[in-house]
């Protein structure tokens, strides 16, 4: 191998490493988001209630916002729009899904937490946002969401806002790829 070929080989290896790094960035970003709470992403998997001390010295207001993205004839409603909880206390709220369309369809509620720092301290025990829902025409469904704010929630946070946006899940195989294989953490 001539020196030039050696250099080119080394450069190409560096290039390939950068390509690999780029591909790895997508899952890394999701991991990073979940560790740091960047962007208000919350965990996409249920977590167990940690029975620890309930910090009864303070209250945190938890608000629920629901929105419907375009293309889905559904309505999502938070039956408890706002609750006051102690950090450490597990709490259950209920949401109603209504399909006012004329056919069955599937949708998914994508969560976002604000302030984003709070998402680190939010433990969802059960949530409809972990999986997609399917509703028949005119069907109404009430689903629970059980959560716990950990007692180490920073002092400065007095209000936590949880927003759920409903998006349609298209029927067919492409749609399945969409939500499972291509995205590591689906927030």
């Amino acid at each position: 191998m001539t020196p030039v070929q050696r250099t080119v080989t080394k450069t190409l290896i560096a290039l390939l490493m950068m390509v690999g790094f780029t591909i790895a960035l997508v899952p890394l970003y999701d991991v990073f988001c979940q560790i740091t709470g960047l962007n208000g992403k919350s965990a996409s998997q249920p977590r167990a209630v940690v029975s620890g001390e309930v910090d009864e010295s303070r209250y945190v207001t938890v608000q629920f916002i629901t929105r419907t993205g375009s293309g889905l004839p559904w309505r999502l409603e938070a039956l408890n729009r706002q609750v006051r909880v102690h950090p450490g206390q597990a709490y259950e709220v209920r949401f109603a899904f209504v399909n006012h369309g004329k056919t069955a369809s599937r949708g998914r509620a994508v969560p976002s937490v604000s302030p984003s720092e709070a998402s680190l301290h939010l433990r969802k025990v059960t949530c409809f946002c972990f999986q997609e829902q399917r509703l028949e025409a005119g069907e109404k469904l009430e689903l629970p969401m059980m959560f716990q704010l950990s007692s180490d929630l920073p002092e400065g946070i007095h209000t936590v806002t949880l927003a759920y946006t409903l998006y349609p899940v298209a029927e067919g195989p492409v749609a399945n790829n969409k939500s499972t294989s291509m995205q590591g953490g689906d927030a």
Partner: peptide, 25 residues
């Protein structure tokens, strides 16, 4: 190259790297 390839996939192959509706960001 990676980021525009992801765009290409999002536009033409139904992935959701950058589309919140499909779990992207």
């Amino acid at each position: 190259a990676g980021v525009i390839t992801m765009m290409l996939l999002d536009i033409n192959f139904g992935t959701s790297f950058f589309n919140a509706a499909g779990g992207g960001d």
